[in-house]
């Protein structure tokens, strides 16, 4: 499973000017009250805690203070102190630098072709001295930068989830009973009221009653049905906790608390290890369940 989000970050007066500088192939550092120049810039003076307003240009050439290379990678990492700065910048070192790489190596910024006001406007460092950057007027500070985050995970099911999903693949619903409070959880899980693993496996009917529901009227990205439609909590016969599912085959205005419903399974050849084996629930035509029978589940 991959989750991703493009964070947009407001930069403020110091980092906004720093990023604008990178866009124009210039590196700005912040000068604090003790005269030290920080690259990347600090927004507040670490000694006096005052906001930092004094930005000065430093050289795009500097010295490697420390470096590393991971076998099989196309670039390495270095801490580089640019000429005119007192602190080190963390960035990558390009592939061509590997055989020369040592502490004390003189390196210069290789600028990215397409610069947007982002730390990645520095493509990497490479051995050598930069030529003097021509004087240009300082551009507008960058207000917002986008930092995409993308991470992948492989989730592992618990023994209880495993048992539940395997039963679903066979067209069955199961729950498990908490040994302490004797409630039957569907899907089975550690009892959140008692903090103990469930034990006895219980076969659950594929029919039950609507406890509560909502009518979805709002369209959203990825929606599979046309609004309005009903999403309900369905308390299956034999279970002590409702599951959430769709109620179809009846007008949204006719769905009500206590309505008796039954699962409509997809064709057997479509079944896999998923609750989607049940397409939706629809009314059975039985008399409504009395309020007392589901009051505890609201």
């Amino acid at each position: 499973m991959t989750i991703a989000f493009d964070y947009t970050r407001s930069l403020g007066p110091v980092l906004g000017r720093f990023m604008a500088g990178l866009r124009d192939r210039r590196v700005l550092g912040s000068r604090t009250a003790d005269g030290r120049v920080h690259v990347p810039p600090v927004e507040y003076d670490p000694v006096t805690c005052e906001p930092v307003t004094d930005l000065v240009e430093v050289s795009p050439t500097g010295t490697v203070l420390s470096w590393t290379w991971t076998e099989g990678q196309s670039s390495g990492w270095a801490l580089v102190r640019l000429d005119g700065a007192d602190t080190a910048l963390l960035h990558t070192v390009g592939a061509g630098a590997r055989e020369h790489l040592r502490t004390g190596l003189r390196v210069r910024i290789r600028w990215a072709g397409d610069r947007t006001g982002h730390i990645r406007d520095i493509e990497c460092f490479e051995p050598g001295e930069a030529e003097a950057t021509p004087e240009t007027a300082e551009g507008e500070p960058v207000a917002i930068m986008t930092t995409p985050i993308r991470l992948s995970y492989r989730h592992t099911t618990s023994d209880e989830e495993d048992r539940y999903l395997r039963a679903l693949a066979e067209g069955r619903l199961i729950g498990q009973r908490c040994p302490a409070c004797h409630k039957v959880y569907v899907p089975p899980r550690v009892c959140p009221a008692d903090g103990v693993a469930p034990d006895e496996v219980v076969e659950i009917a594929d029919r039950g009653m609507v406890t509560t529901f909502c009518v979805v009227n709002v369209p959203f990205a990825g929606q599979r049905l046309d609004p309005p439609y009903v999403v309900a909590q369905v308390l299956l016969d034999g279970a002590d906790i409702p599951i959430q599912h769709l109620i179809l085959g009846v007008g949204a205005e006719q769905v009500r608390m206590g309505l008796r419903v039954a699962a409509v399974w997809r064709d057997r050849e479509q079944w896999s290890f998923t609750p989607e084996n049940i397409a939706h629930f629809e009314p059975t035509g039985e008399p409504d369940a009395p309020y007392e029978s589901y009051a505890e589940h609201l």
Binding site: Y7, L11, L90, T92, R120, T147
Partner: peptide, 8 residues
Amino acid sequence: DPYTAAPL
């Protein structure tokens, strides 16, 4: 640092 380090 989410501005100058993490994006790398």
